[in-house]
Design a protein around this nucleic acid. Structure first.
Lengths: 137, 137
DNA sequence: GTTCTTGCAAAATATTTGCAAGACG
DNA sequence: CGTCTTGCAAATATTTTGCAAGAAC
């Protein structure tokens, strides 16, 4: 299996343990962002803390980014290959009010805001809530 | 005391109980958004659940709005007088990474996003993270 | 061996609800 | 009385840490 998976881990300087391969596999197959509790349900056997730390490791190495979409649970999604998690890499997220799924709108960069000079800017989180195409049927 | 406080409650169709007067007083004096745990600390004697329900009541009547700034705790701040919590009323929020305080940037409306037509839009949350003027000194 | 990772347990925090007593009209 | 509000208790959910056993090198 995962030559690609291993390459990806390697390219982000993450040691390819079995657990990490499996989690990255799931994240890769996943079209929408996923929360820790959801991930737990996909791995009935794996420990919560292990999954938690796996996600944290991935996040620290910029393999995934976290999204607080206001649903009460933080979700995670794969970064784009070129992503450095800098402001210019940030994109809009979409939370479906019906199915509670969160989508990365990678083609929608976050518009710039000209803050008062008394504020310095590090990052921006922008979440659009609405109804996704699947739920509109 | 609170003729103004009472007026405000009355104008939003909220019965002016003692608890609500006190909470609104605190929210009015507050320059930044406040979370439930923070509010609890301001009212050592009051019950968590009561404060919680007070905030929910205020929110439902559009006296305050909730802000999920990604800090892990939802915060609340007074609405503008004219606010109907509609998309056009929404403003940018600023979270200071140092002091963890959240500011309503009432003069900064959230820029419009042209979503793909497969998504319907209900509301938008935009939080800018950085360092506030107090912490920049 | 040494370092990193994992599993189990449990703590810490935040949010939310049930229910009975009380306040208020 | 009847409705709304409050206080206490407890459930739920999520996130996070401590620690010892195990794996990897």
């Amino acid at each position: 299996m995962g030559t690609e998976i291993d390459n990806k881990l390697h390219s982000k300087d993450i040691k390819p343990t079995a657990m990490r391969q499996l989690v990255l596999q799931v994240l890769t197959e996943q079209k929408t962002a996923i929360s820790l509790p959801e991930l737990e349900r996909k791995f009935e056997k794996a420990d919560k803390a292990t999954l938690y730390r796996t996600l944290k490791t991935f996040e620290k190495h910029k393999l995934i980014h976290s999204i607080d979409d206001g649903s009460g649970t933080v979700k995670y999604a794969l970064c784009q290959d070129t992503c450095e998690c800098q402001p210019e890499d940030l994109h809009v997220h979409f939370l479906c009010a019906k199915c509670n799924q969160t989508f990365c709108l990678n083609d929608f960069p976050i518009p710039q805001i000209n803050l008062p000079s008394s504020f310095s800017l590090e990052s921006v989180n922008m979440v659009v809530k609405g109804v996704c195409s699947n739920c509109m049927i």
